[in-house]
Amino acid sequence: MTALFDLHDVVVARAGRPVLTAVSLTLAPGERLALVGGNGAGKTTLLRTLVGLETPSAGRIVAFGRERRTEADFHEVRARAGFLFQDPDDQLFSPTVIEDVAFGPLNLGLEPAAARARAMATLDRLGLAHLAPRVTHRLSGGEKRLVSLAGVLAMEPQALLLDEPTNALDETHRDRLIEILAGLGVAMVIVSHDRLFLEKLAGRAVLLKDGRLAPASLHRHVHVHDHVHIHGLDPDHGHVHDAAER
């Protein structure tokens, strides 16, 4: 099967500054790729380039089997690759959750009733059906993240581009997100600083540095360390405290 994305020596500048100097990248169907790199390395720019929100000054982008150059080319790419933005507040704009999730399917040309049904089914699948009539800007941070994911998944994408999806999520919502993503089976590019999250999901890692991509390894060491726990004061908290701590 052919690759979903295939980039050759792509160059992108933002505000006159070169961000990506020569990026080559392949994403196979079903592959989960971790994209790591420091702050300002250009990870978000690379994701934006994949769906044509940034225009490369050189290089070739092949997506879903065709070379893509113009805004019209990328329209089809956006219909097949779901982009989850870093700040869910940027993405949620409709008054209610159900309208926001139905927005993508409507853009794909579905009839309003069908789009609504698809949106409802997606929310249901993610266990968010109870949120459907809620007003988007009154959701909690975790709910906003999951609803914005529903908005992307409702388009039934073949690939997901996730920009720091666990940002500002508590553990419950993060575990929920991992569980949902692990069960999807679609290809993903995951930008994250959350190593545990990457370890659970990603099969391969690449490092973006100085505008180029290099293979990276994602592996586990045994460290001996202590860390901070926070829990309520009831005695039934399920672990033993050090004697020194008491």
């Binding site: 929100l53 329209h75 219909a79 982009f83 933005f85 853009n107 794909l108 992307v152």
Partner: peptide
Amino acid sequence: RRRLDTLRARAFR
């Protein structure tokens, strides 16, 4: 501008 980008990313024209 940010919001328009997110609309475009969900295939809005």
